[in-house]
Write a protein that binds this DNA or RNA. Structure first.
Lengths: 225, 225
DNA sequence: GTCAATCTTATGGTATACCATAAGACAACA
DNA sequence: TGTTGTCTTATGGTATACCATAAGATTGAC
């Protein structure tokens, strides 16, 4: 009997509730643009597509409303949230602040394991770009930044960033598809990582701000196109 | 017939849904500590207290979960979220960044009307402290900062700040009750306003950071007491 | 053809029913 | 007394029923 730790005998708990599964499914579908911004989300249609009752659908929609991914228009019901042009620049500004904060603290405190994880994550971003699937890029990018925020010990900031990013997914997906962004985007993230590896918080912060500034420029161009 | 504007004849829309009313009620109750952190929120009991069906209660709870005010523990159901000590410093750090951003931009762009509104709002903070009711202080303080964020054109940041503040309400209420905080807290906010009136973004930012640093010190003392 | 009145349907808002199961109470046994 | 087994209840998860009404379609009058 080599392993008598209590944890070793712990019975796996049952799977998630239908509500949780449906929430994850809907969140992913919105974030990967299976639904267009502004598209109506009709409860009964979602019931059929998700295979759950209206109770579950409604509760899921309440979550997504609070997350900002869904907005409910009086007399029309819920729809996928469309970004408000007036808020795009604000969102990028806040992203810049949050990412700069994480980069700075990551440069100051990352462990060798953190650095390895960041390198691996950046490699996945490259592969994402090679696959030409913007959502693969977004997923890999999110992984890179989550790794960075974790290494920086800034999980609350990460939560804020995730909610901000969720509101501009379509825009980010389009900027990723911009010609040349694969080289420039990866180079900018590499510059952030270089600064982190060099343990230079100021440089990491500056590289982050530069990266976001370029992303904002692209985003503004896209939202006018 | 002096006023024939179409708006003048517009029939008032019906009141909010039960769900919205219940959500506001519950949010306020949590934010004014009618429920303790960690307190179980039993659906059927809430139905009786709110006078609505379980459907409404469940949907409200889903909103509040996503807002971070309620957490649902497996096999135990929903409870008022308790702050995680590891996150308090992070939350104050982010508050500092957001408030500093707003103060800086308010100093740069506030109109005379904005300034009047800020002065009036600060006077209400004073009255709040004079009433010795920490929640009156919190409400007046929120009004002051909302005014500032609006004047700064930073409503997305305001949304983030509101959600962060919601997670530490009990702590903020306790710091407000700290002896001497009425003088110091108001003086610090006055310093922020002075800098804004002087149109000095750097000073406004510095005053904001100082204010939050002091609030954090108090909060950490309180969370150890 | 146009406009108003009426009808129908789709859909959101809300209440209620049913089920599963965790947790607690109680009884029996060693 | 401590442990195990059984029963009961509280409570969350989910499905369904019912209602109100906005929106669209249809009909009739001019």
């Amino acid at each position: 009997m080599p392993d008598t730790q209590p944890d070793a005998l712990l019975i796996d708990r049952p799977a998630k509730t239908l509500r949780q599964l449906a929430l994850e499914k809907m969140r992913e579908a919105i974030l990967t643009m299976k639904f267009r911004p502004g598209e109506r989300l009709v409860e009964r249609a979602l019931c059929e597509r998700l295979g759950v009752s209206r109770s579950v659908v409604r509760e899921v929609l309440r979550h997504l409303e609070s997350e900002g991914l869904v907005e409910t228009i009086p007399n029309h019901g819920p729809a996928v949230a469309a970004p408000e042009p007036a808020k795009i620049a604000q969102i990028y500004e806040l992203r810049s602040m949050l990412e700069a904060l994480a980069a700075r603290h990551c440069a100051a405190r990352a462990t060798p394991e953190d650095l390895n994880a960041l390198r691996a994550a950046l490699e996945e971003v490259r592969e994402g770009y090679a696959s030409a699937d913007p959502f693969a890029v977004l997923a890999a990018t999110a992984n890179f930044y989550e790794t960075m925020f974790r290494a920086a010990g800034r999980l609350v900031a990460w939560e804020l960033l995730v909610s901000l990013n969720g509101r501009i997914t379509h825009l980010r997906a389009r900027t990723i598809s911009t010609s040349g962004r694969d080289r420039e985007g990866v180079a900018e993230m590499q510059a952030i990582l270089d600064a982190i590896e060099a343990r230079d918080p100021d440089a990491a912060e500056a590289a982050s701000v530069r990266h976001l500034q370029n992303a904002l420029t692209l985003a503004l161009n896209q939202s006018q196109a």
